[in-house]
């Protein structure tokens, strides 16, 4: 169980995340929704401590995540693998080496520095690539891959970390619909087959409704909605997203256009 207790992060004067509390049981697929700048990314980055909380406590089981440092912090980051919007691969390295970044905490420094990966680690990385249907790309340079392929490599990197949690920060925001589906399906498979907890920031409400067990809505750095996807009524969604509502709910904007002339002449 991942527990966030009154977690706050302020950058200088502005508060990005304000008093967020939630409990995430193991194995849940949680979608974090809200408009851009609502504090979704920061919340995820607070969990793996890429960003330091200003205040509050994050715990996982008996582990006090907020107090970790050094090797313990690195091992925690291994246990909560992150998937980024922009994939964050190493473009000039090949796909296999990129996936093997997920084994860094298991590998002595001299070995990884010389890229002398262990045989079973390589096998594990290849198996992960195979699961996502891109084993044939193992020897390719990462920056020669399409966005969808790169994101799948990033998922493989996350998988070989043998994590308990996967933090996905807008994983499909830079992908076309087809690739978005492939990547979301992969995340769902990870969640169902390996029982990993998934925390996924999503901009699109349709995707959130399709894939998530539970939705957490954020606005202005606060949690304003936390319930089953079916409880997210249209009026709540409008409140969450404001002017962006039509865009994220995947509806035709025609209705809006029809209202424009009236609004302009009024």
């Amino acid at each position: 169980m991942l527990v966030l207790n009154d977690v706050t992060k302020s950058f200088g004067g502005s508060v990005a995340v304000s008093g967020v509390s939630m409990k995430v049981p193991s194995g849940q697929f949680v979608g974090v929704i809200g408009r851009s700048g609502a504090g979704k990314s920061t919340t995820l980055r607070l969990i793996n401590r890429l960003t330091e909380p200003t205040k509050g406590r994050i715990g996982f089981g008996d582990l006090d995540v907020t107090a970790l440092s050094g090797p313990a912090l690195r091992d925690w980051r291994r246990r909560c693998a992150m998937i980024f919007q922009q994939f964050n691969l190493i473009g000039r390295l090949d796909v296999l080496d990129n996936v093997l970044m997920g084994r860094l905490t298991h590998t002595p420094g001299w070995r990884s520095a010389a890229k002398m990966w262990r045989r079973d680690d390589r096998a594990m990385a290849l198996a992960a690539l195979e699961q996502l249907g891109i084993a044939g790309l193992a020897a390719q340079r990462a920056d020669n891959l399409s966005g969808g392929q790169q994101q799948r490599v990033a998922i493989c990197r996350a998988l070989v970390q043998e994590p308990d949690i996967v933090l996905a920060d807008e994983p499909v925001a830079s992908l076309d619909p087809r690739n978005a589906k492939i990547v979301m399906d992969a995340l769902q498979r990870i969640n169902r087959h390996f029982g990993l907890t998934v925390l996924c920031n999503l901009h699109s409400l349709d995707l959130a409704r399709t894939y998530c067990d539970r939705l957490v809505g954020m606005a202005g750095g606060r949690v304003v909605f936390d319930d089953l996807p079916s409880a997210l009524t249209e009026s709540v969604a409008r409140e969450l997203y404001g002017l962006e509502a039509n865009e994220v709910m995947g509806r035709e904007p025609a209705a809006d256009f029809a209202e424009w002339p009236a609004a302009l002449t009024a």
Partner: peptide, 14 residues
């Protein structure tokens, strides 16, 4: 971005 990728995978400073 690649730096954060490595960091988030549990890589140390070096």
């Amino acid at each position: 971005k690649p730096v954060e990728g490595v960091l988030a995978s549990g890589g140390g400073r070096l």
